[in-house]
Design a protein around this nucleic acid. Structure first.
Lengths: 139, 139
DNA sequence: GTTCTTGCAAAATATTTGCAAGACG
DNA sequence: CGTCTTGCAAATATTTTGCAAGAAC
């Protein structure tokens, strides 16, 4: 398999780019919306769900992907934009309660807050729930 | 059963205060942290889980409680502070990745963002994940 | 009686782990 | 050989629904 963007990403984060991991990374890069484990399972017929699950967890640990709780009940995953994958890099998400799709507002950064004394932050989730333009038009 | 704060809350939102609903509301009011369905099931031995589930959903629909996705994998519920239960009323939450507890930062309002054209907002979730003071001290 | 609410059971969905076989170096 | 990765199977956990009995009005 060729060396692509995925491999560079993984190596930079200290993750060995196995063929399965490359498959997962590519599938996520090709997706428009953040994807769930089940969606990835459908996209990657050759891989077992548990393998995808383990790759995703590895990616989350190594800050290669974000896990997003969008309130749909199922966790969504998304490749980090930048090499950093820092909090400043995280953007807001929108979950449409009608069509059940999750949108990325890549241009809208998560506004930061001051945490009370003693709390330390690893990540933030900012999710707006409501109705997307398409579904609003259908009414 | 006596008429309490719970009943007023429910009636104001157009929900008939049945005894089970009062039980759920009281349990939630007595809790410090936001509670999960399973926690409520433990607190309310007399009620069936599905009944609690349905009460919670009813409450969420009628804006009596907020549903919070804290990244623990299980949904948490919390009684709305104000009668409004509007977006301005929502506060931020903190999930400790060590002790797996969810904290309410009642004094820290969720910073608002401008949504792109066409999107309409029903609710917001702002959850910070990290380490709480107690767990940080243990290290 | 009619409608709403509840409990029981079970289905549907999601997440997570054990273990042995295979890949890699 | 030793370590890491993978697939299969199965266990857990969580959310959700069908249905009939019971309560409320």
């Amino acid at each position: 398999m060729e060396t692509g963007t995925e491999n560079i990403l993984m190596e930079a984060k200290g993750v060995k780019p196995t063929s399965n991991r490359i498959l997962v990374a590519r599938a996520m890069l090709s997706a428009i919306h953040p994807v769930s484990l089940t969606e990835l399972e459908t996209m990657l017929m050759t891989m077992d769900k548990s393998s995808i699950f383990r790759v995703l967890n590895l990616f989350v640990e190594h800050h290669i992907v974000h896990a997003i709780e969008d309130g749909s009940g199922t966790l969504k995953y998304e490749i980090c934009d930048s090499q950093e994958c820092s909090i400043a890099d995280m953007h807001t998400h929108f979950y449409c309660e009608k069509c059940h799709k999750t949108f990325c507002f890549k241009t809208i950064q998560i506004p930061e807050i001051d945490l009370p004394e003693g709390f330390s932050m690893n990540s933030v989730n900012y999710v707006v729930k409501g109705i997307c333009p398409k579904c609003a038009a259908k009414e």
